[in-house]
């Protein structure tokens, strides 16, 4: 393998990895507040992408379509949280997880009925001319994804560490009962987390679509990879989600280069399992907390 090829595999991994990272961030936020894995996370990304395409094809300029898609997904997420998750807050994580499974089925089918069964494209934000570095090439849209991922992580870190609300969210993650006793409104924290997670997922969807297009069924793979990335990095840690996502992407890229594309996902999952066996709380996870 030449150096150029190696670099290209890494760039390729970075493209997929930053997409996984952005999806994983959405998981992290909801997990932090509720200890819940949202099985509809991939569908929120898909909905974000498809809504933007729909609005853009209706004649709106791209930035407006972007904001419109954010609003749509935000509304869907908040509605879902209020109608389905809120009544289940006292009823344990598993019931909530099943509600998100139901939501993922419903969202996928609704998207199919609204946006059709074929893949839809969106123009790249800043053109298609690739950036060449040492003979390898990078899609400029990837930089958008990477840049916004970093920006979101930074914002989240500031939010969690510097603001009162952020500290309240973290308190809920550690011990909801104690947080409630300290005057934190648990259900508001959950609502906030869902809303922000929805917005991030929508943004992810809009930014991914120019790279890989979007179909109503794209959410399944994105959700799986996002969950894997989040678990690899340690659930609940935004930095971990990003590191996990990029690591997963680069593992896959190198898996293609060194072994075979058919086995690249298997390689990624084997390594994920090994990491979990050796460090059950993920790379960046805190002490293992037993989840009921």
């Amino acid at each position: 393998m030449t150096f150029e090829q190696l670099l290209q595999y890494i760039f390729s991994g970075l493209t997929s990895g930053s997409i996984y990272a952005l999806t994983a961030l959405g998981f992290t936020l909801i997990y932090n507040a509720t200890g819940l894995i949202n099985f509809a996370q991939g569908e929120l990304v898909m909905l974000g992408g498809l809504s933007a395409v729909g609005l853009y094809q209706a004649g709106l300029p791209l930035p407006v379509a972007f904001l419109g898609s954010l609003t749509i997904v935000l509304i869907v997420t908040v509605l879902f949280q209020q109608l389905a998750i809120r009544p289940l807050l006292s009823r344990g994580v598993l019931a909530q997880v099943i509600a998100t499974v139901g939501a993922s089925l419903a969202l996928r089918t609704a998207a199919m009925m609204i946006f059709g069964r074929e893949a839809l494209p969106l123009p790249a934000f800043s053109g298609d001319t690739p950036i060449r570095i040492f003979g390898a090439s990078l899609n400029p849209q990837t930089l958008w994804v990477v840049g916004s991922t970093l920006l979101i992580v930074l914002a989240l870190q500031l939010f969690y560490r510097r603001t009162l609300t952020g500290k309240a969210v973290r308190a809920c993650a550690v011990n909801p009962l104690a947080a409630r006793l300290m005057g934190v409104s648990y259900s508001n924290v959950v609502l906030l987390s869902f809303a922000v997670s929805g917005a991030i997922s929508a943004a992810a969807g809009v930014m991914i679509t120019p790279i890989s297009f979007m179909t109503y069924s794209s959410g399944a793979l994105l959700g799986l990879k996002g969950f894997a990335a989040a678990a690899l990095g340690g659930l609940g840690n935004p930095v971990g989600a990003v590191v996990g996502g990029v690591a997963l992407g680069i593992l896959e890229g190198l898996g293609v280069g060194l072994v075979s594309s058919g086995y690249k996902d298997a390689i990624a999952f084997v390594i994920l399992l090994l990491v979990l066996f050796l460090r059950p709380q993920g790379i960046f996870g805190g002490k293992a907390v037993e989840q009921e």
């Binding site: 393998m1 390729s12 793979l221 996902d265």
Partner: peptide
């Protein structure tokens, strides 16, 4: 020869390998 999944996001890794 290389393969991909229908919904895969990026195929540059496969293409790079084929190019080799």
């Amino acid at each position: 020869k290389e393969s991909y999944k229908t919904d895969e996001t990026d195929l540059t890794a496969q293409l790079t390998k084929l190019k080799g």
